[in-house]
Amino acid sequence: MLHIKCPYCGMRSQNEFSYGGDATVKRPELNKEVSDQDWDNFVYNRKSPRGKHWELWQHISGCRQWIKVERDTATHEIFNTLKANEEIL
């Protein structure tokens, strides 16, 4: 079971969180023309990298905040966690 550092609550066990997918996906702006390809990339197409991956987790059984987590998908090492409004560098 992973140990995730919530930026609000500190180190908490994985069973308090739910996974939310790739954190680098940006939703196209509302009321703007979006090509089929761009929309498909937003809705469906995801990379499945082996190694470092920025992903979203929600602390559902805690502060309910969505957070960004940099995790190695192969080793499960967690390098960094950020609040939702903090930019991935």
Partner: peptide
Amino acid sequence: AANVLSHLEYYLQLVWP
């Protein structure tokens, strides 16, 4: 009920803060 709440929180916190 639970999924909708998470869905709303997702858009408020991440997409349209």
